[in-house]
Amino acid sequence: MKSTGIVRQVDELGRIVIPIELRRVLGMDVGEPVEIFIDDQANRLMFRKYQSGCLFCDSMESISYFKGRQVCGSCLRDMVSQPDLDSMAILESAAALESDDQPEQGSSIGGKKGDNALRRLAEVMETYPNATQGEWARKLGFSQGYVSQLIRKLDKKA
Rank of each mutant, 00 (worst) to 15 (best):
R23L: 11
C57A: 02
G106V: 08
F56V: 02
E104L: 15
A42L: 11
C54S: 06
L150T: 12
A95M: 06
A95N: 09
G134W: 08
F142A: 08
E126C: 14
E135F: 01
Q41G: 06
M46Y: 09
D84A: 11
V7N: 01
C57L: 07
L76A: 09
V71E: 10
L55R: 13
R8E: 13
D155G: 07
D29I: 03
S107K: 15
I6T: 04
V17I: 15
K112A: 15
E135H: 00
V34I: 06
E126H: 13
S59F: 07
P19V: 12
D86S: 10
R119S: 09
V30A: 07
E21D: 08
A42I: 02
G106P: 12
F142P: 05
S59G: 13
D39K: 14
R69K: 13
I109G: 09
S148D: 08
A158R: 14
F56M: 12
L26W: 06
I18D: 08
G106K: 01
D155C: 00
K157G: 00
C75I: 11
D155K: 09
M60W: 05
L22Q: 09
S99Q: 14
F47W: 10
M46D: 02
V71N: 12
E104Q: 13
A137E: 00
L97Q: 13
V147E: 00
P103L: 10
A42W: 00
Q149N: 13
G106I: 06
D78C: 00
K113A: 03
G110S: 08
G53H: 10
G141T: 05
S74K: 15
R15V: 10
I6G: 04
K113I: 01
S99T: 12
L26D: 05
I18W: 03
L118P: 11
K67W: 12
T132G: 08
T4R: 08
Y128V: 10
M60K: 09
E61K: 11
D101M: 13
S62M: 10
L118I: 10
L45W: 08
Q9D: 10
C57G: 04
S143M: 03
T4M: 13
F56K: 11
A131L: 11
S143L: 01
E98L: 09
G14E: 01
M88E: 06
Y146M: 08
D100N: 07
G14K: 05
L154G: 05
A117R: 06
W136H: 14
F37G: 02
A137N: 00
R152S: 12
P83T: 15
Q82R: 10
V10W: 01
P19N: 04
K153A: 06
A42V: 04
L76E: 07
E126Q: 12
A158D: 02
I63F: 05
D84I: 04
T4D: 15
F47G: 11
G110I: 01
S108F: 09
G31I: 04
L91H: 04
L91N: 07
G27C: 02
L97T: 15
L97G: 15
S143A: 05
G68V: 03
M60A: 10
Q149C: 01
A95Q: 04
Q9S: 07
Y146S: 05
D58F: 10
I36M: 11
M79N: 07
S3G: 10
M60N: 08
M28N: 02
R44P: 00
L150A: 07
R48W: 05
Q105I: 13
Q70C: 07
M88C: 06
V71H: 12
S87T: 03
G73C: 08
V124P: 14
P103D: 00
